[in-house]
Design a protein around this nucleic acid. Structure first.
Lengths: 349, 349
DNA sequence: GACTGGCACTCGGTAGAATCGAGTGCCAAT
DNA sequence: ATTGGCACTCGATTCTACCGAGTGCCAGTC
């Protein structure tokens, strides 16, 4: 599975063809078995007509190059992060299994409902397809404009500001005042807020009239609450699917704990994924992303573009010895389907 | 710790004082050490002036009664679910440690923001206080009435129905039509919907005028989408804190996996908690709740009442050998603080 | 009759020793 | 450059012995 001797020797760190084949065989085998891989296994399994002894020599060289490591003398080799990196970089992209393609199509042909619900269920699907924990980050396009604003009188001194954006997002914010607010005041403020904000984005500068009547106060307060939204970045929703897979695919209680605790911190997950997107990386192995507790994990992401605009990403988290080919296929497939869903379908993200 | 020889012998299944003491000692010790508890340990630790031999005799009797079990001959005893049940039933409620009380007070004196955010952070706090995974279920009071309805024109054939309830909840629903909707139609429909729905609950029967102009169609569609909400129960938000604790406190990968997968199913968690609330149970041990995958877990819940009305619950999930006293203290303390927060504070739930 | 000390017995856990074998590194031969 | 051969390493497995915590039971004591 997934082998190809002919490697391009254009890149600078490229290995010669045979080393590459051997490295790839070791990685593939180790991903399969979770065991150190020995020279004879490689000699058999990779069909270069060469004896184990030769393979051993090459392996020594690969170890010197930092691609392989030995748990102890007289055990087989295990890929290092660098080894995995090479493997991934030289992986030709694969296809989803037919059964999974059907499943995907099925799912997306039948899915309906709110954005959040779709993403939630999609992340469950992706986890199930891939066998690993999935992450879907919905980047609320900061470009989306305000479609409607409304102040609702919850209690005398407590208004709820409900803002609807062009991408279908609804934000709510409490506006607490020191004085009782009349219903009429609230209505009036709503109307003015609408006039003021419709068509703007959260980043727009808005000129708030600074008169000192109660309506103006309310408006000023509402606008400031709404714009305070920015720094918290809380509008980036994260959907995690198959969290229980963590216990299956990672070894060691401590590792499981660490991965879970990362997943709990939504902000961390978001910035991890965004960092990768920014750097244009689709796979981060081991310590390649800077997140220490995830150093025994690999993260695969695929961006989601809706109508040509970055709208978020889907990701998968597993051990460094995860099934990259399948996982990447699943991620890109889901990302594409998701994009198509939101482009063609009733909702936008 | 947590022992009291004087047990009431009013209940029917009550054990005599000494058996009770012994049982309690075994449970307490086992919770502490996670090891089978032997007769001599009990004899020393519980200060009834009795020899190990006597304790042994009693233990045999307790084993016959189904309170204790032996992993194998010549090991100590381990409590059964029934044993834990007795222990919990005869536990006098404890206090939070002073440091934790401060922490709680601190938290609630400083907390601000939307309901969802408060609950999210509270569940993290509770997990941290108790050392176990926490669950907070916000039961949207089905009594809360509609304060405002608004149809927003997202795309030509796609409207967003935004409904604000008296408890501050905001629901959004997509309304997809087969024909293009004019802006004016949308406005008109909004106005009529407001007239129709304000003051009603989701359970109210609403008489929709059945004329066949586009506005009426839109209204009918909107109302039906809104009322379709009911059966899915999706408005009951669940907040889980400290999911990573699962890996710490449960033994065995498989158990961890099962507990995590339960936690993933929000609906399951909700019904588990609601079942317990309905039955007025605050602790469910082992298989007492009917959820097989959680049979090695215990669940502690404390209802949250806001202004005398059931508004949700806080819960904790741990192994059957969890620190019941501390955990129950933490749950009730948080529940009370939460109630006070929403009663006094700016937001209601 | 309740309690206890004594004692034989059980059985899981641990420590050592022996063994196995997969895998290595190296060297001499091709 | 490749390879067969070989000595060597070292984790994993098995086996044994053994220790000791803990039990159940019995006979003796208060």
């Amino acid at each position: 599975m997934a082998r190809r001797g002919t490697s391009r020797n254009s890149g600078k760190t490229d290995l010669d063809a045979r080393k590459a084949t051997i490295l790839e065989a070791v990685v593939a085998e180790h991903i399969d078995t979770a065991q150190p891989v020995g020279s004879s296994a490689v000699a058999q399994h990779a069909d270069l007509g060469v004896s184990p002894a030769t393979v051993r020599n090459e392996m020594v060289s690969l170890e010197r190059g930092g691609y392989l490591a030995q748990p102890h003398t007289s055990a087989g080799r295990i890929p290092t992060d660098k080894g995995y990196r090479y493997f991934v970089d030289h992986l030709q992209s694969g296809e989803l299994k037919a059964a999974q393609q059907y499943q995907l199509r099925d799912f997306f042909s039948g899915v309906r409902g709110e954005v959040e619900e779709v993403l939630e269920r999609t992340s469950a699907l992706l986890a199930q397809l891939s066998g690993y924990t999935s992450v879907i980050v919905g980047t609320t396009a900061t470009h989306s404009t305000v479609l409607s604003v409304q102040l609702v009188n919850l209690e005398r001194r407590h208004q709820l500001l409900v803002t609807v954006f062009s991408d279908g997002t609804v934000l709510k914010h409490s506006v607490v005042t020191t004085e009782d607010i009349e219903y009429a005041t609230c209505l009036e403020a709503s109307a003015q807020l609408n006039a003021l904000l419709i068509g703007t984005t959260l980043e727009s500068r808005v000129q708030v009239p600074s008169r000192s009547d109660s309506v103006s106060h309310l408006i000023a307060e509402a606008v400031s609450v709404l714009h305070a939204e920015r720094p918290t970045r809380e509008d980036e929703k994260v959907f995690i699917g198959g969290a229980s897979k963590v216990a299956e695919v990672f070894d060691g209680v401590e590792t499981v704990r660490q991965v879970l605790s990362i997943l709990e911190e939504e902000l961390l997950v978001v910035s991890l994924v965004e960092d990768m997107l920014d750097r244009g990386v689709s796979v981060a192995i081991g310590s390649e992303h800077g997140y220490a507790p995830l150093s025994s994990a690999a993260v695969v992401v695929a961006p989601v573009h809706v109508d040509g605009v970055a709208a978020g990403a889907v990701g998968l988290i597993g051990p460094t010895r995860m099934k990259y080919q399948e996982v990447m296929a699943a991620a890109t497939a889901v990302s594409k389907n998701l994009a198509r869903h939101f482009e063609g379908g009733a909702s936008a993200d």
